[in-house]
């Protein structure tokens, strides 16, 4: 592949991923509202388009045309940059995720990964972690006490779950012996029985819990819990800047779903008669649905409970898991 081809292919991939995942993130809000509504015996959005499908479009128009308010006492440049960080990091993290198996289109073999960093897992997790700077900066810059509380909770959350995420995927990485997501995927190519989740159930549960914390989904929905801190870091935001936080959050959810299915659930290998591309879509959809499902079912916890859970329960569990995995690998 020459340099020009490489540049063109990369640019096309970036555009496709950006467009596709912005649309998916928008559609995710529709799905979330529908699923939550059905679980609470409601109908959800019904009026815009058939069954409210075009609600996303209406919301988008609303967000784009709304006035962009910057509060007088805020630190303006940082206030304005913060949502961009949120959306950008979510998409940058997607750059190192192999989305589908290789396929051929118009006679060209396409690797559906923008940049095959050979430490893919760490890259994705690191970039996603730095995505938490968005709520932090937003809360601290908006000169609002609710915002400041949201920012403080962001710090708590990052310092709590970050360690658990790293340690929980350590054990599967030890089994595979590589940090590349493609290698991890290929390790599980033997079919249903080869999925790492069967060998590492504890790590899977820990990773999911940490993933919930990483994407601020409901059991750990501390940063912007309406009942406690109005809207947390997003209190002063309006219009598209607020929308960017949301796109970032949903893109992060999809990324975590991709990561969990790649590392633990067999990735994009063929699953019985189901081809690999469809299999990973099914897995990611289920995990995404699981995110919404827990939001309907579970209450959220206090910040001190999150710290207690992460440092006193999950961290020791993860360490024990690593030690046992190491012992088993040695023998």
């Amino acid at each position: 592949m020459t340099l020009t081809e490489f540049v063109i292919a990369t640019v096309v991939k970036i555009l496709v991923v950006l467009g596709l995942f912005s649309a998916l993130a928008g559609f995710g809000t529709y799905l979330e509202r529908k699923v939550l509504a059905f679980m609470q015996r409601r109908l959800g959005p019904m009026h815009v388009g058939p069954y409210g499908v075009l609600q996303v479009l209406a919301d988008g128009i609303k967000l784009f045309t709304k006035e962009d308010i910057v509060p007088q006492n805020s630190v303006k440049p940082i206030f304005m940059i913060a949502p961009v960080i949120g959306a950008a990091t979510a998409f940058i993290a997607l750059a190192a995720v192999p989305l589908f198996p290789e396929f051929e289109i118009f006679g060209i073999t396409v690797h559906p990964i923008i940049s095959d960093v050979n430490v893919g897992v760490l890259f994705v997790l690191g970039v996603m972690a730095s995505g938490l700077y968005a709520p932090l900066l937003a809360g601290m810059a908006s000169a609002n006490k609710w915002g400041l509380l949201g920012a403080a909770r962001t710090v708590i959350q990052l310092l709590s779950y970050e360690v658990v995420t790293g340690l929980s995927i350590m054990a599967p990485l030890m089994m595979v012996g590589s940090l590349s997501l493609i290698d991890i995927n290929n390790y599980q190519s033997g079919g249903f029985g080869d999925w790492i989740v069967w060998a590492q159930p504890v790590a899977f549960v820990l990773f999911l819990i940490a993933g919930f914390a990483e994407t601020n989904r409901t059991p750990f929905d501390l940063l912007e819990h309406e009942a406690e801190i109005i809207s947390g870091y997003a209190t002063e935001y309006s219009g598209m800047r607020w929308g960017m936080f949301f796109i970032g959050e949903y893109a992060n959810m999809i990324t975590i779903a991709f990561l969990a299915s790649l590392i633990f659930l067999g990735g994009f290998n063929d699953w019985g008669f189901i081809p690999g591309g469809l299999a990973i879509i099914l897995k990611v959809s289920f995990l995404f649905f699981f995110f919404l499902w827990t939001r309907a079912a579970w209450p959220h916890i206090r910040p001190d409970q999150l710290m207690w859970l992460c440092w006193k329960i999950l961290l020791p569990l993860a360490v024990i898991n690593i030690v046992i995995t190491g012992l088993v690998l040695m023998i």
């Binding site: 960093v117 690191g126 938490l132 700077y133 710090v155 990052l158 970050e162």
Partner: peptide
Amino acid sequence: DFLGVVQIIVYTGAVMA
């Protein structure tokens, strides 16, 4: 790559503190 990613992860947490 490894050091770069470690740089991101470590300093994200450190500066956050």
